[in-house]
Design a protein around this nucleic acid. Sequence first.
DNA 1: TAATTACTTGACACTGTGTCAATTGAATGT
DNA 2: ACATTCAATTGACACAGTGTCAAGTAATTA
Lengths: 194, 194
Amino acid sequence: MSSKKNQTRKKILQATWKMLEESNGQNTKMADIAKTAGISRQAMYLHFDSRIELMIATVKYVDEIKELNKRLELFNAAKTGVEMLNSLVEVWGNYIPEIYSIAKAMLLTKENDEATATAWMGCMSGLRSYCQQTIETIYKEKQLNHNWKIQEAVEILWTYISIHNWEQLTLECNWSNQKFIKNTQTLLHSILLT
Amino acid sequence: MSSKKNQTRKKILQATWKMLEESNGQNTKMADIAKTAGISRQAMYLHFDSRIELMIATVKYVDEIKELNKRLELFNAAKTGVEMLNSLVEVWGNYIPEIYSIAKAMLLTKENDEATATAWMGCMSGLRSYCQQTIETIYKEKQLNHNWKIQEAVEILWTYISIHNWEQLTLECNWSNQKFIKNTQTLLHSILLT
DNA sequence: TAATTACTTGACACTGTGTCAATTGAATGT
DNA sequence: ACATTCAATTGACACAGTGTCAAGTAATTA
């Protein structure tokens, strides 16, 4: 059928991702992406209505490839709340650097664009629900520090494993990714557990 | 002398700030600011070489008016490390909402502009050195949790009171500013102190 | 009265996004 | 083998926003 169209679409998505990776999420122009994909700038609009749609599509594309869900098997296998907490931080912490470029692009664009903001919220609400599950389990096991209501604990967890915090600690403070994961685990234990 | 020029400069800075406040840091065009300031778009360039220079000048202007330094008297008066920690979180936490719009504009621009990034780093290094002082004092008082090296503790503190975390917890999770301050204090205690 | 200063106006260059119409070239159906 | 369809190309253009330039004005100063 339109398998040729799909091929080109894929080429564009790959080119977009490549460009984002190379520029750390900034300054990726339609013309540049087109050049990398080996097509004309105008042809981009045969596949995506706008730059923003392309970005959102790229997020989905990368997300499929990176298979966060499969990685979360470790999380799903966890027996206790504390194990859930540890594997959530580990899986997510290892995921961030792989999607950082596209995530960064989204974070910058979402401020000026409603559609991007909505798409990004969708991605983040997935993470948030994992945080919710984790905290609820910890609570049921009577391990949750009495300082915190469940919802507050969820929000703290969600915030402290955010991409912005990862960015600041690894890129600005030069922490290794392992150090980020390890320290975040340790410190969430002190905060959240009895 | 050029007091008229200075007056206009001030009008521009005030207009910029006002526009940023109204748009939450986004979408402030030179033309809009000019209109608010009551001068022509082109005249803006008689006072500031570029949009980016204007933004940086506005940060300095707002900073002077808001007098962070005066507010830090509370911090400077602190006798113990723990007091320092509490007043740092309190003073800074009350400061953020007042400068949020212009800070947001800087955070968005710094990704694409070296001059903005440098200017922003300058602002943030001030905060960072307060974090450093605080942690060093806590360390000297033998109150620092043995899990952390001094530098790590500084970086955690600096990250956890960041504007991004404030943004996520207050604007996205609907925490009040007081709740942000109180919870951040509590949780930094659990993390950092013995 | 002449010169200087701050500002105005209109025009224009430049970049990047998005659209349009006319055209080419290859694959597909009959 | 012929016509149709589809993907892509090309060049042109509209639009927004930044930044520049030259010519002119109106008030201040010397």
